[in-house]
C-alpha cells in the first residue's frame, strides 16, 4: 500500500499557470538515527521526483534526508495542451512509484 495524493486541475485555459500539488507516502528514514543497541538505521528515502507533461519533463527535484516524511512538493506549470501529467518518485532500495493525472486544456 502506498498512496499518492495528486492535485492537478481537471481543466484549464491554454496559457493558464496551474498549481500542481503532490503528497507521497514514504517514511524518509534519514540514515542518521541509531537503535538502542547502537546500530545505525539505514537510510531509506526518496531521492528523486520527476514530473512530465505529455512525455516532456517539466519539473525535477533532488531530495535529501531533510525532506519531511510523506514528501510534499508543489510547483507551477503552464497549461499548454490536453493530455497526461505523469509523476515518478524514485529512491533507495530500488524504490519507484508512479502516478498520473489527466488535464483538459481548451
Amino acid at each position: 500500500m502506498a498512496a499518492a495524493l495528486i492535485n492537478v486541475p481537471k481543466r484549464a485555459k491554454r496559457g493558464d499557470v496551474i498549481e500542481i500539488k503532490t503528497l507521497m507516502s514514504h517514511i524518509m528514514e534519514t540514515g542518521f538515527r541509531h537503535s538502542t543497541t547502537g546500530e545505525p538505521i539505514p537510510r531509506d528515502i526518496i531521492t528523486n521526483f520527476v514530473c512530465s507533461y505529455n512525455g516532456v519533463e517539466i519539473f525535477r527535484a533532488d531530495l535529501y534526508p531533510a525532506i519531511a516524511a510523506n514528501p510534499f512538493i508543489t510547483f507551477f506549470t503552464v497549461a499548454t495542451e490536453s493530455g497526461k501529467i505523469e509523476f515518478k518518485w524514485t529512491g533507495d532500495n530500488g524504490y519507484s512509484e508512479t502516478a498520473s493525472a489527466a488535464i483538459a486544456v481548451e
Binding site: 500500500m1 498512496a3 495524493l5 492535485n7 500539488k21 503528497l23 507516502s25 510523506n70
Partner: peptide, 16 residues
C-alpha cells in the same frame, strides 16, 4: 485535503 498527509491513509483505507 490536498495537503493533509492524513489523506494518504484515507486513500489506502478506501482501497482496502
Amino acid at each position: 485535503d490536498t495537503v493533509n498527509p492524513g489523506m494518504l491513509w484515507v486513500l489506502d483505507g478506501e482501497a482496502l
